[in-house]
Write a protein that binds this DNA or RNA. Structure first.
Lengths: 202, 202
DNA sequence: TTGACAAGTGACCTTTTGGTCACTATAATA
DNA sequence: TATTATAGTGACCAAAAGGTCACTTGTCAA
């Protein structure tokens, strides 16, 4: 039960911090959103900053477990169609998952204030995605699905535009449907450009 | 003199808001950074929110004048080398210009709180760049510098990765030198990929 | 049954915040 | 020169903020 409330506090803090920022959120709001009173929160965390630190600990652990481990690499597709389908599944998931949306927003808002948020933001928005797709592209080159090139460069060129559209959805959710179409169009374009030469049938 | 102090207040507000956010900044800091006392600020703006609104007005006007008008389109290069050089000039400028850095940071921090900041953020980080380079790529296709394709798709595929690296510099300035190298490597890769077929001498 | 502990309450405290106001100094104008 | 508007000061205010503490309540183990 202790842990339960502690987690509920962290959930509420994530929701509020990701909407209004750390400075823009006060402990009364956090506690009220849980149906308890401010001093109750202090039974579980000694300060607002302690909530922030625990939240970041959790986010870092979650990221390491979910995206950081070698086992969680995306499966290598057998066809370019499958690759595009995989891209769309991942994109739609990350665009719609409430917890991940809040995490991205939080990192966006606090990246200039907190060192750990800064580092995690770079992973989330840039290097994490690039690393992940570097492996996929290297394997696709081995399979002859796309032409040989620097897999890291391809991964960067592929993920950065998709990441930009995901962040657009965070900012302007009403553009989500269009952004998803744009992601698919971009993915198709990308594959058409990098497709292995002997395989030009799309 | 009235306008002078008013502008100095807006400058100070931009600096502070872009570092610590609107909520994280108080009027005493703004006034102190100008060597005057809090109530002096209220001789020029009726509230903190009025400062924010005036700042956004200024940013919107600046953007419209600098990036929004047709006259300020980048010149169409005559060679792909020139195109890369132009890219690097623009990238290095936007990465190092203090005022533009602050503007980007401000929009990053306030995009979820203020409608106008939201709209301007999308322009700054996404559509503005795409629109700009759509024209350049269309002209380069006409000149036969790159192969015929959808210029808007190319503009998006080109500017989004560069924008991601610029935002990395905002977040982690110590990575600026490396990011600039990455931008150049990406630009060269991009041109190599899209170069017109009859022109394959790099 | 009782003792102890964890969870939650409400009153209270201090500091910080945005904002007001009567006042002064200064410089331009009638 | 007298007047007046403007820029700036410092004391003040109320609200909101983070945080503390004595107290109650419910639960579980001795």
């Amino acid at each position: 039960m202790a842990n339960d409330t502690k987690d509920r506090i962290l959930d509420a803090a994530l929701s509020l911090f990701s909407q209004k920022g750390y400075e823009g959120t006060n402990i009364r709001e956090i506690s009220a959103s849980l149906g308890l009173v401010k001093s109750g929160v202090y039974k579980h965390f000694e300060s607002k900053e302690a909530i922030w630190n625990a939240l970041l600990d959790k986010m870092i652990a979650y990221y390491a477990q979910r995206f950081g481990s070698a086992e969680n690499l995306p499966p290598v597709p057998d066809t370019t169609q499958e690759f595009i389908a995989m891209t769309m599944r991942m994109a739609e998931f990350t665009i719609h998952d409430e917890h991940i949306i809040k995490t991205r927003k939080l990192l966006t808002l606090e990246q200039f204030r907190d060192e750990r948020a800064r580092a995690l933001a770079t992973k989330h928005f840039l290097t994490g995605l690039t690393d992940m797709f570097t492996h996929v592209f290297a394997a696709m080159m081995d399979k002859g699905l796309i032409r040989r090139d620097d897999p890291e460069m391809l991964a960067f060129a592929y993920t950065a535009p998709i990441s930009a559209l995901i962040r657009l959805c965070d900012r302007e959710p009403e553009k989500t449907a269009e952004a998803i179409k744009q992601i698919e169009a971009f993915a198709r374009h990308f594959i058409a450009v990098y497709k292995a030469d002997e395989d030009k049938n799309d």
